[in-house]
Amino acid sequence: MFWEYLPVFVMLLVAVLVAVGLFVLTSSVGPKKMTPEKAIPYEGGSETTGAEGLRLSVKFFLTAILFVVFDIEAVFLYPWAGLFSRLGWIGLVEMLVFLSVLGVTLAYAWKKGAFEWEK
């Protein structure tokens, strides 16, 4: 079981080595002349007020919550899809009910105006 996954980790190691190698190269070849002007944010030259105080629109939270709802439901569907041909009509009916509930959820969120980004 574990051995099946080993090549993946080896490949990831290759990816890490590529990234690290590039950075070692760039830090040894590239110039290092830091000045205070280089360290200020690229925002047009005037003194920045910082990005931390930026207010987030509530739309982003709404999108995140909708994502959590639908993403988890979609993950539930995968084992079902893999076994679908062996589950027969019980699998079919159960999943149609499940998908209908998801559809109702979507319709409710839609009706409540969750997808109107400009409001």
Partner: peptide, 11 residues
């Protein structure tokens, strides 16, 4: 790109 400076902003 390798020859460019690797900058980190102060903040």
């Amino acid at each position: 790109l390798l020859q460019k400076e690797d900058l980190v902003p102060a903040q």
